[in-house]
Amino acid sequence: MVLFWICTVVLLLTGIGVIASRQPVHSVIGLIVNFTALAVVFLTLSADFLAMMQIIIYAGAILVLFLFVITLLTVGNEPVERGPSRLSFQTAPSVAAGLAALALLALGVRNAQPSAGIALPADFGSVASFGLQLLTTHLFAFEVTAFILLVAVIGVVLMAGRKEVRF
């Protein structure tokens, strides 16, 4: 319980930090902390395997990719937001729309039904049951995901590997 609320605070704070910091590197660090807290949240939901994945794939792989791109391309650059904005009528409506959406979601969440109260099986969220479900019930989704990854790999190689870019 306490763990959950600590994680919540960390999640929200680092989330704001991610979108607020001037330097992308700071954002990535915020994001790493955010994802770690998220893994703990998964643990409180008895999703052990997901927590591992969250750390390994997200914090480990994707964010490292972000870091690479940042260090390779933008080190020493002035933060983008120093220059004048082109979109004059963007900030206020965005914040307003965000707050409105938040309010509506809160309204919706308030109506959420309490849990069914079914007793959890012992192996809920374990690697074994997860693997069993993934490769039997959800085999098709699994295969499609594999295909999407393949397409993404090909696309990335095509785009990033090109010498000259024209747009």
Binding site: R86, L87, Q90, P93, S94, A97, G98, A100, A101, L104, L105, L107, G108, N111
Partner: peptide
């Protein structure tokens, strides 16, 4: 052509749809 404008449009759309669903509910 501004990506962020499109994003804002989407968010406004989300707000409207949410409002509609909550109203129906």
């Amino acid at each position: 052509g501004y990506l962020r404008r499109y994003g804002l449009s989407m968010l406004v759309g989300v707000v409207l749809i949410l409002a509609y669903y909550l109203y129906v509910a």
